[in-house]
Each structure stands twice: as C-alpha cells, then as structure tokens.
Design a protein around this nucleic acid. Structure first.
Lengths: 292, 292
DNA sequence: AGCTCTTATGAATCATTGA
DNA sequence: GTCAATGATTCATAAGAGC
C-alpha cells in the first residue's frame, strides 16, 4: 500500500477546510504558545489565545474520525508572577464544542530550561492533553508496552550516582525494592507520565519536541496506514515520524521556510523508505507526497 | 521556645473560624477528593465539590499571613470516562476570592497505584497547586537544594578556554554561561516536579501522602517557629512532620478516630522531641499540644 | 566498537532601566 | 503613573569529535 503525505502551506484556520470530515485517526500538535515564537508565528497574545484557538479545535473536531484522538501539547506561561488560566479556559471551551477531555498526560522534561528566580523554580513539565470525540476510541496499549528487561537495564544504567544519592536521602523508598517487584514480568504498561529530554540539536535542524513524543502517541493511537495530522507542522517532526512508521500524514504550516524545508525532505521520501527497508530487512512499497 | 500544636475536632468549615486572621505561614493539605472516602467524609459529589470547597478556601485566605503560601494537593477523578473539570473550576473560583495561582507543582509518583484499564494508563501524577495572597511571599529556596548532576564531575575536571569566560548563546536567547562559575558547586535548585514514592505505611487513613511531600514544602516556605495548618489532618502526617521540624502547627479533623489517634500521638510529644534531640546531638525544649 | 571529552542550546522569568 | 525594552541568571542533555 502506498503511503501519502499531504502538505499544506498556509494558516490552518483556512487550510483545515480542505481536509475531509472524519478522515483523521490522530492529531498530534504543539501550537505556538501564547506570546511565544513571536518572530516566526507572530505571537498570539494571552488574552486572545482561547478565542484564537477555539475555531481551530472546532475544525479539528470535524476532521477527526469518531474513533480518533487529539493530543495537544501546551503549557501556560507566567504572567505578572502568576500562571495564566488560558489553558483551563481552553479545555472548558473545547468541552462545549463536544470534545471529551479524556486524560492529561504529563511530559516530565529531563533537561528543562535553566534559570533562577526568587519566587519559583525551573519549569520541568508540560501538558499533553488528550481529547476525544467519542468515549470509545482506538487505543493500542500493547504497542507501547515496555520490555521490562530493557526498562530495568536502561533505568539502572541511566540512574546516576546522584540519583541514587537523592533516592537514598529519602529513607525507605529504595529503588532496588521497586526493581525486585518487576522480576519475572517481561513487559509492563507505561503510566500517564512521559519522561523525556527536549532535543538539543547541535545541528541546523530545529525540532519543537523530541521525536519520541509523537512516536509514542502514534504507536498508542494508530495502526499502519492510519492517518496522522499536525496542523502546526513546524519543522515536521510529527509528519516525518508518522511517515517512517508507515502512517499517512497531513501537515499544515504557515511559515514558508519551514514548509519548504519539509517539502524538500519529502522529495527524498523514497530514499527514506529504502533506508527503513534495509534496516528492517524487508522490502517496502514506496510513498509519495502531495502539495495541496 | 516552646512549640505549640493546636488540634481541633470537627468540620473545618466551622473549626477554621476559631483560627485568628493572618496567623498561618503555610497551609499544606490534601482534601478528600470528590466521591472518595465516602465512608469517612460523607463523600462530596463531583457536582457540588467547588461549592463545597470555596467557603473553606475563603476561610483559609483569612487565616493565612500575607507572606504565607497555600499548597493544595488534588487530582480530578475520572467520571464517565472523562477527567472532571472541578479542579479547574476551583482554581478559577479561588482567583475570584483574591488568591493568586502562583504555580502548579507536579508530584510524579515513583510507584503509582497498579491497575489496568482499556482506555487509560495508570495515573502517576497529582497536582500540587500553589496559591498566595500576595505576589511577595516567603520562599527559602536554599533549604531544598539537591545534589548536582553527575555531568558536573567530568565537565568541571578541566576547563577549556571558552569555559573560563562568559560564552553567550548564539541563538540570541540572551543566555550565556561561564562554566568556571560552576567549579565547587555541589548542590542545585530543584524544579517544579517532585519525584517521590507513595508511602504505604499509613495505617488507617485511606489517603497515601508521603511525609517527604509536606516536609519539602515546609522547608521551602517556612522557618523554625513558623506555623503550619492542615485543615484536613487525617492521620496527621503534615502536623507530625511540622512538629518534628520545629514548626508550630494547627490540625483540624472531622473523624473522631483519626483525631483521637493524632491526639494520643501528641501526648508523646516530649518523647518525639527527645528522639530528635538525640539524633541532632543537642538538647531541645519540649513542645505541647492543646485540644481546642 | 566503546569510551571520554567538548560544545551548543532549550516554548523562561524577573528586576531594572528608559521612554 | 504605565508600558516596553534590556540585562542577568541557570542546569542537563545529546550530538559530535577524538582516542
């Protein structure tokens, strides 16, 4: 089967209208946060944020299949010494549109932004809000089970000396005790906390979030040949991961430079698929992209 | 100086009236969640939760010092396959009362409650909402510093030329670093994610609240001889930790059995203090408790 | 391969200064 | 008075280079 990637250049408030009803299995996106990324996106102000986003979420509701899922990566900024409330208002507004707020995953960032202030600590987490159209939705939990052997191995390997010290400082909560609970099991389901690093690219390629994030949700909520949408494509991380995982994809981007970069990458799609065919030791059908 | 612990038996909606204005430095509490602990607290329904809590938070506002902090441990439950919105509504309601929603800490649970559901994973985090009366409040950040990561050991062994002077980031973020400033540093400030185990040694009380949690916030927001309040005392973890840390405390509990257990524990206060005196290698003044 | 060392940088926030 | 621009501050990670 041929994989298809549809790329749209423009404001998703307009471009989404071209996407058919009930055609998307998973939306994973990280919209520009309020007042952030001014240089590239123009920066939506805190006071306007909810009213700016609600028409978009309404369109997303239309294009998502009833069995599909919408994952929204967002975090409120500090305004005048206080956390803003626009994310809460957004959730309440989306529920009025018919969305179910099924779950809130947390992205616990390993390497958060540095800084020091007298009234707060560094912010090490972001929200990953899960919305659904229906209470019955597709979820493939087994696809994200963690092999316990690897888990324990990596966990122990990555457990630094200071981590152990920090652990031991709190008497009783022995890490070893936890590990012993897992002996004998071979796979385990994850929790609703995702513990990942932000990508710190030493290269030119600037990614909004680590590729493991979309990868995890694509595995969890889609199967091969399903369709993934990112209405704020940016440098295309979500779309590229979806393509590599043999999912169809739809990407929308308002900034011409980003759009063009992604488009050129997809000109090389066949090479990508050849690559993965070689890696997987099997031959793959090729994919194609369409400029929409 | 003599430490004082005030214990109240009764509904905190009534008992809080006996607590003077602006007398509390820190409130740390974990109220009964909606529809939980029905047998003990009568079970506040999801739909009534906000209206039930707002009069309480209003009283808490009155008793808290302007420099004080209110830490609310809460998590919305799943109702009909969806996360409830009462926590968000509570935050919005409390802001109308004059509270500032300064920050949301996350308690990332190391060993969360086991279980398996078809539509969600195990819940491994809870909210720790920080509210303040004023934008200026007491915060003793140095009291909760943690060991620096392992990276420092190798990184700081030998410094390159650029390490010795200020090296400004090339992305225009305004950040820069002077690595030589880090030499000799062995502790750093934590983030707004608290990564702790749940504690299971609570005998009767159904809420698992590890003592490290109140301990961390008591260190962060109070000094010795300050006063800590828990209006939902339960088995008295917060009060007991406060007492051991040489803070005055006020505890309110509606269930006679819990209240009585805590009261009897505090009859032994002098022994506790002797204990800590022995641990610290110094002699302590004794404390007392008052039944109010 | 596997290890060590070097380097860039990541959705930030607050206090101060200047208009 | 307000509001906008500027400067100061900070920790951990992965990529890449070198051995």
């Amino acid at each position: 089967m041929k994989l298809i990637t549809d790329l749209y250049l423009g404001d998703c408030r307009n471009e989404l209208k071209k996407v058919p009803d009930n055609s998307i299995d998973l939306i994973v996106t990280s919209p520009p946060y309020a007042d952030q990324r001014k240089s590239t996106y123009g920066g939506v102000s805190v006071s306007e944020y909810v009213q700016w986003f609600l028409p978009i979420s309404k369109e997303l509701f239309r294009v998502l299949k009833p069995t599909g899922t919408f994952i929204l990566n967002i975090k409120e900024k500090v305004v005048d010494g206080e956390r803003s409330t626009y994310v809460m208002e957004l959730i309440l507004g989306m529920r009025k549109q018919g969305w179910f707020w099924t779950e809130e995953f947390i992205w616990h960032k390993k390497n958060c932004y540095p800084g020091k202030w007298s009234n707060r600590f560094r912010d090490a987490w972001e929200r990953l809000l899960q919305f659904n159209k229906d209470k019955k939705f597709n979820m493939y939990q087994d696809a994200v089970k963690v092999p316990i052997g690897d888990w324990a191995k990596n966990r122990l390997k990555n457990l630094s000396e200071t981590d152990k010290k920090r652990d031991n400082a709190k008497n009783g909560s022995g890490f070893g005790k936890n590990i012993s609970n897992w002996v004998g099991k071979d796979t385990v389901y994850p929790t609703n906390v995702v513990y990942l690093s932000t990508e710190c690219n030493n290269k030119n390629h600037s990614a909004a979030f680590p590729r493991e994030l979309p990868e995890w949700f694509i595995r969890l909520f889609t199967q091969e040949n399903d369709t993934v949408l990112d209405p704020f494509m940016g440098s295309g991380t979500t779309i590229e991961v979806a393509n590599r995982m043999k999912r169809n994809s739809v990407g929308i981007e308002i900034v011409p430079e980003y759009y063009e970069t992604v488009r050129q990458q997809f000109s090389l799609t066949e090479y990508y698929l050849m690559d993965s065919a070689i890696e997987d030791g099997e031959l793959e059908s090729t994919g194609c992209y369409r400029v929409c």
